[in-house]
């Protein structure tokens, strides 16, 4: 059975989210897979052009509709279902976008879903983390049934560009619900790199002591072009906004360099960083569990160590 895969693109109306390129890489791990990316938007042109350039994409289908201006799962899902017939697999990213949408698609189809796919061993055999990553489960699906899945972005590199896939307008005539209305989104404005895609991330924990305490991390982060994250404890204490949270209930990330500053390393936090290439731990408690997973550990007072690192880097 060769897989015919439909990937639902995540985007903000202008720019394709990198999670989509990661889904493409995941799909490409199935030999001979035919990969189609679906773009739903008020105006698909810009995003569709970016999707068409992803290496490995065979086709891009677009659904232009003013109702698609914001990604409401209840509005998107029936349109994805309308596109679904020719495909064996329907994938979305395991981001809040995909996690919201794909189960609704699965529900409408009566199809099974595999969440957080971290490896595709065959068109019917997948691996995924369960129990906050404390166990890895191999799941098998039936070749007869359509399968819905979300792709764990941190497990895959983004597909490169260089593709020239054709873009087709899809004819979707389904009635869309009016029971769900988008009101607003508020995001902290930041010039720093995006936490989910940054090559370097510095995260702070409760030991930072206050929102003010985080300033030394922002300062170092700006020096090395890093994004700033936070542990759940720091978010709960109000030192950092929730969109900075890294861990089981926050963001799952895979940077080249992850610096955990004043973070003890609860299992729920480690779940969010286990795919980081290099982990640095800075903590005054030498027994903290974060040192068990750190490639480089430094026991010391973060309020001295962080400014010291910044000073050393300034010297070149």
């Amino acid at each position: 059975m060769s897989a015919k895969i439909l990937i639902v693109a995540e985007h903000d109306g202008k720019k394709l989210n990198v999670s989509t390129a990661k889904c493409v890489t995941a799909a490409r791990s199935l030999a001979g897979a035919e990969i189609t990316v679906a773009v739903l938007a008020a105006d698909c042109a810009a995003v569709a052009a970016q999707a068409a350039q992803l290496a490995g994409v065979g086709k891009v289908v677009t659904v232009d509709n003013p109702a698609n201006e914001h990604a409401l799962a209840a509005v998107y899902a029936p349109q994805v279902v309308a596109l679904a017939a020719p495909y064996t697999h329907l994938f979305g990213p395991s981001t809040t976008f995909g996690k919201d949408l794909m189960p609704r698609v699965a529900g409408l189809l009566g199809a099974p879903q595999i969440s957080d796919i971290m490896a595709l061993e065959s068109p019917t055999r997948f691996k995924r983390p369960i129990f906050a990553g404390n166990a890895i489960l191999t799941v098998e699906s039936s070749p007869e049934a359509k399968l819905v899945g979300t792709i764990r972005a941190a497990s895959f590199e983004a597909a490169g560009t260089g593709g020239t896939a054709p873009i087709e307008k899809a004819n979707v005539s389904v009635e869309l619900p009016k029971h769900t209305r988008w009101i607003s989104v508020s995001a902290a404005k930041s010039d720093r790199p995006d936490l989910q895609t940054a090559a370097r991330v510095i995260s702070g924990g409760r030991a930072l002591g206050s929102a003010d305490g985080f300033k030394i991390l922002y300062s170092l982060a700006d020096k090395i072009g890093a994004a700033v994250g936070a542990s759940r404890a720091a978010v709960d204490a109000g030192y950092a906004p929730n969109e900075m949270q890294v861990g089981q209930t926050g963001k799952i990330i895979a940077p080249e360099l992850y610096m955990a500053v004043g973070i003890s390393g609860a299992i729920q936090h480690l779940t969010g960083i286990k795919d980081a290439r290099t982990i640095v731990a800075i903590n005054k408690d030498g027994e903290a569990p974060i040192f068990e997973v750190a490639d480089f550990g430094l026991v010391g007072d973060l309020f001295q160590v962080i400014p010291e690192i910044e000073r050393l880097l300034a010297k070149g």
């Binding site: 099974p112 166990a135 010391g300």
Partner: peptide, 28 residues
């Protein structure tokens, strides 16, 4: 509809090294 074929413990990260101060960390 799905078969739970196999449960495994997650791969463990290799334990790393301790550095003594900021200078050694930056160097590494």
């Amino acid at each position: 509809q799905l078969k739970l074929a196999r449960f495994e413990p997650p791969p463990q990260r290799q334990k790393g090294i301790r550095v003594k101060d900021a200078a050694e960390l930056v160097e590494a």
